[in-house]
C-alpha cells in the first residue's frame, strides 16, 4: 500500500513539473536540435577554389556501400585540359537511392577525396515513386548547404 501511495505522490509531483516545464516540444516550432556529427543523407561537396565537385567518380564509395545504393560514372575533366584543375577525371553522373541508404557513413570513411559528406538533411519526402533517387545536382545542393552551414573544410593533405 505504501508504495502505491509513493507512486501517487510521484505522479502528482510530475504533474506539477509537467504543468510548468513539460519535456515534449512542439516539433516544427522547436525543430530537433541536431548534434554536430549528425548523419543525415549523404551529399557531395563542392570545391570552391576551382569551382567543381571534389568527386572524381572513382567508385570507391560504391564498392564499399553495404546496400549498393549508389551509382556513378566519370568523364574527362574539361578544366584539366586548360590546366585550371588538377583533377584528370571528374564525376559525370551520380545517383543515390535514398530509400536504400542506411546512413552508415562508410562512404565518407572510404572516400579519398573528401568528396562525400553526411549532411544534416533528414526531412526529405517525395510524392512519386522515383522521388527518392537523388541525382548529382541534388546531392551537390544538399552537400553545398551542409558546407556553408557547418563551415566544412576538406581534411589537410598529408
Amino acid at each position: 500500500m505504501l508504495s502505491t501511495v509513493k507512486g501517487m505522490i510521484q505522479t502528482l509531483s510530475s504533474t506539477w513539473r509537467g504543468l510548468r516545464k513539460p519535456v515534449t516540444k512542439l516539433y516544427p516550432e522547436n525543430p530537433t536540435v541536431l548534434q554536430n556529427r549528425f548523419m543525415g543523407f549523404p551529399g557531395l561537396t563542392w570545391d570552391k577554389d576551382i569551382d567543381e565537385p571534389f568527386c572524381t567518380g572513382c567508385m570507391v564509395c560504391i564498392r564499399n556501400c553495404p546496400t549498393q545504393c549508389m551509382t556513378a560514372t566519370m568523364k574527362d575533366n574539361p578544366k584539366f585540359a586548360d590546366e585550371s584543375s588538377k583533377r584528370r577525371k571528374i564525376v559525370d553522373e551520380f545517383e543515390i537511392n535514398l530509400n536504400r541508404c542506411i546512413l552508415c557513413g562508410i562512404c565518407v570513411d572510404v572516400c579519398n577525396f573528401d568528396a562525400i559528406v553526411m549532411t544534416h538533411e533528414h526531412e526529405e519526402s517525395g510524392s512519386y515513386r522515383d522521388g527518392s533517387r537523388m541525382k548529382l545536382d541534388g546531392l551537390l545542393e544538399i552537400g553545398g548547404k551542409y558546407q556553408t552551414q557547418s563551415g566544412w573544410k576538406p581534411a589537410p593533405k598529408d
Binding site: T11, S14, T15, R17, G18, L19, P22, V23, T24, L26
Partner: peptide
C-alpha cells in the same frame, strides 16, 4: 490533457 501533463507531455495542442 491531464494525463499528458502527468507524463510530462503536452497533450493535444
Amino acid at each position: 490533457k491531464a494525463l499528458g501533463r502527468l507524463q510530462l507531455r503536452l497533450g493535444p495542442t
